[in-house]
Nucleic acid binder design. Structure first.
Lengths: 231, 231
DNA sequence: CAAGAATATGACAAATATGTTACAGCAGTG
DNA sequence: CACTGCTGTAACATATTTGTCATATTCTTG
């Protein structure tokens, strides 16, 4: 899980992009930019931003078409989109809704309005419970304080082990292949050896200690699983 | 269950095609090649590959043009495409995203990255099978957690026995020959003795215990069957 | 019932999968 | 720069699985 939210700004006018970027960065977001839909698409696949700000009118390829494409791909279907439209584009809203746009902002807009809407969409889209404390047999993980503890004693986990544990604790009783774990925990655009997962599983198990080791189960021929049930 | 995926490599440079082909074949893919878009198009219609690796820049017809054609034909619309682009292609005019590329990879790239991306796209595009729990007379198989249990007690199955049981439970009341079982459970392209099936049937029966042994029935002269009805 | 055919079973060595450790590179830090 | 914590990889150690064989056992048919 990324702490700072990354926003992709797609607009063909550099000046507008810059203005937005400055506003968002002041509000504590991280920005990447694209000046056309194709570059944007490549960037989205590559960087998986937390949100896309999309200009309606762009040369070559409209924002709405990009939006539709993003929705049709499982990998990008969940990324929220905010459309930037001109005031007299009312009827486009209909098309936009079909394509699954999360919100609209009409130009011109104030930076404050932009930030407010953006936060609102992020809040709405972020699955609730993602900040929920999870506890299993005395093993406790608190996403807010970013800490894990076993019987009130803090565990010493590296960042990767923490994310791995968080993923497992919020997806219990499911077997995951190494590849799936790499996708879900490492992120879709890193290319590391599958066996690296084993090493991190090992580190996690070690950190969990005898008391909780059994929760991380090996599923032979498949991968790993987090479960309280006996293997 | 596993089928070898066939990849079509389209690039006008023989050396690059060869390099990619070697990398992919080492990773267990099957490759076919084309050195221009027209040949590629014919090959795609003919061989229906599982994925197309497409060079951006080619004489006669550009990769993007081919991509567009593939998308517009219902027969080829679902074939995933990965574009190979050169780093300095940035200034090339992009003619629309409606071509529907699934991923991009910039030259030069490492074989490992290529394979990783390719697998990732295939995974994303290929719909998963049904993850439905099956239960028969207290014998329970849960594909999600990848567990089999008899009266709530976990069974100790090897990977092959698990797959065998999963196949049987989702194809009940029907006799399968050893050859069919080898095809369906082992995968079409392995060569093992037919008698090996007997051994795994034996192992599965043993793991099922007295309570459920009767479900795996021998059909003399033919093969085996999974059924709740008495033999 | 006997003979022949088909299937069941146990043992085992080779092949695979996973566990574990060590190490080198890297980024951040004082 | 030395120091530190983290990561990914390789190498080696263990553990489990797999396919095959040899040998029972069961079944069918005459």
């Amino acid at each position: 899980m990324r702490q700072v939210k990354q926003i992709l700004i797609v607009d063909d006018e550099t000046a507008i992009r810059e203005m937005i970027a400055v506003a968002l960065e002041m509000a504590g977001f991280e920005c990447i930019e694209a000046d056309n839909a194709l570059t944007a698409h490549a960037l989205i696949i590559d960087a998986k931003p937390d949100m896309v700000l999309l200009d309606w009118m762009m040369p070559k390829m409209s924002g709405i078409e990009l939006a539709r494409r993003l929705r049709s791909d499982q990998l990008t279907a969940d990324i929220p989109i905010i459309m930037l439209t001109a005031r007299d584009d009312e009827d486009h809203k209909i098309h936009g809704l079909e394509a699954g746009i999360d919100d609209y902002i009409t130009k011109p807009f104030s930076p404050r309005e932009l930030v407010a809407r953006l936060k609102s969409v992020l809040r709405r889209v972020t699955p609730k419970g993602i900040d929920q404390v999870v506890e299993v047999e005395g093993l406790r993980l608190d996403p807010v304080s970013h800490r894990a503890s076993s019987e009130e004693v803090a565990l010493d986990l590296g960042p990767t082990e923490y994310r791995l544990l968080q993923f497992f604790m919020s997806h219990q009783d499911r077997a995951y292949s190494r590849t799936q774990l790499l996708d879900m925990v490492w992120g879709g655009n890193v290319y590391v050896e599958e066996r690296t997962v084993d090493v991190h599983i090992r580190r996690l198990r070690k950190a969990l200690g005898d008391r909780h080791q059994h929760l991380i189960q090996t599923v032979r021929g498949t991968g790993y699983r987090f479960s309280t049930q006996t293997q």
